[in-house]
């Protein structure tokens, strides 16, 4: 009856490994330092990766991690295995779930979007240079509203092209220049639209499958 929770360390270990790859990519990619050290374009036709490519690589890691967490952790335990846990207060069995209030509730997994945001906060704290966020014009969490012109333009562009290709823009924030890349975030599963359409803080209740729901914004200092 009671399924035990499988060893999650494999999945998380993989996630960490991927993040390390991401960090290494930026380090070798296009930070100011490495550009300064690199030979000039005249003598070296490949002076390091263009920031757009670095953003693409980082995005592929983020996307992979999010998919792994959603499919192999949340979906597997909650939907496929329907793991049951005992509520410590009522002593009754209940379904193991992901919950927005995972931090303060017993036995809950973080939502994929929160997992993503926590990762983004750690990367910001680690001061490796780049930052990223999951934003939308119809956000549940109002902090995820686009703020800068490039964010707004980028979200509109990827919504218009249905997520076929990313949007790249340059902007200056707090006196520093950035490449800002925006990638469509698409409703790939019915869970996405069910949860968002039903959420009391969501300003939009008619998302459909394959809609562009928002976008991943990656910012790389130039």
């Amino acid at each position: 009856m009671k399924t035990t929770i499988p060893n999650l360390s494999y999945v998380f270990g993989r996630t960490l490994a991927l993040s390390a790859v991401a960090a290494t990519l930026t380090a070798f990619g296009c930070t100011k330092d490495s550009q300064a050290k690199a030979a000039s374009p005249a003598t070296d036709p490949q002076p390091g990766l263009p920031p757009e490519r670095v953003a693409d690589m980082l995005h592929s890691v983020m996307e992979a991690d999010r998919t792994v967490y959603t499919r192999n952790v949340v979906n597997r335990l909650v939907k496929e295995q329907q793991v049951q846990i005992v509520n410590p207060d009522t002593k009754e069995q209940e379904a193991f779930k992901a919950s927005e209030q995972w931090k303060t509730e017993h036995g809950k997994l973080p939502l994929p979007a929160q997992m993503f945001r926590m990762g983004a906060e750690r990367v910001t704290d680690a001061k490796v240079g780049f930052t990223y966020a999951l934003l939308s014009k119809w956000p549940i969490n109002k902090q995820n509203n686009p703020k800068t012109d490039v964010e707004t333009k980028g979200l509109e562009a990827v919504a218009a092209n249905g997520g076929d290709k990313p949007f790249y823009g340059k902007e200056e924030l707090g006196g520093k220049k950035y490449l800002t890349a925006v990638y469509a975030d698409v409703a790939v599963a019915s869970a996405c639209i069910d949860c968002h359409n039903d959420h009391k803080d969501s300003p939009k209740h008619d998302f459909e499958l394959d809609d562009v729901m928002g976008g991943v914004v990656i910012r790389i200092p130039l």
């Binding site: 906060e121 750690r122 910001t124 930052t131 966020a133 703020k147 924030l173 707090g174 520093k176 914004v217």
Partner: peptide
Amino acid sequence: HPRSKFTDPRNAD
């Protein structure tokens, strides 16, 4: 309001 919210360049303003 953790520090990381404010070191993110999108909150520079």
